[in-house]
Amino acid sequence: MSNMSDENRELVSALMDGEASEIEIHKLLQQYKLDEGHEGTGHTIRDTLLSFGRGTDAIGASRGGTTSVALDPEKHRVLHQAVSEAIAEDDTVFDAPLARRANAPLIRSRAFQASALAACLVVAVGLGITVMQTGMNSGGLFSDSPGVPQVASSGLSSSDGQVVNTQPVVASTSIQPALGEAEDREGLRELDEERQRELRAYLNRDGGARLDPNVQTVGTENTRNKED
């Protein structure tokens, strides 16, 4: 049988006055669930709330200077039981609570940032592995051999020696994948504008001001030109 401690009864008293903390509310609700089946014994959250509420109500009644319809404790128990049963059977859907609505933009924003960061990391690790494999397969990181992955410091000069792209070396590095399959190449090389921005922002944040977030970091143009 559930037997409430003085501590829990004191918590009930604080709850009535709106002075219970969040963790205490949680504790009381846990106890409330444990109490199920022991109602009416006088040792449950429900019994204590009803009992304390009765006293508070009597004081409140006297403050108004009038009397009203008074239900005896048993009728209050019956009333609460009836409401509880009706609520248990009710199928009201709570999909967008007040507090979560208020916090939603922040939460969504954080979730999105976390997802974007994770995606960027996956791409970065993928690129790194590819580069490492390339290096091992070819005996070096940079190779001009056909079909062998390349990390080309592209965009610094064209065949006639003129500078055609003034982007920083790191930012303009493009990667030629090891596999011949177009899909695989696309999967490794291409990020849409939004993700590129996120990746640049992440790299900037992590590595200081090494990168300019407004310049393209991963591109396919030079690689494609070579392939073409």
């Binding site: 609700l29 429900r46 709330l49 509420g53 109500d57 209050h76 609460h80 509880s84």
Partner: peptide
């Protein structure tokens, strides 16, 4: 249910 208990009186 706890809110009901709190306010039913």
């Amino acid at each position: 249910e706890v809110l009901v208990l709190k306010y039913q009186h």
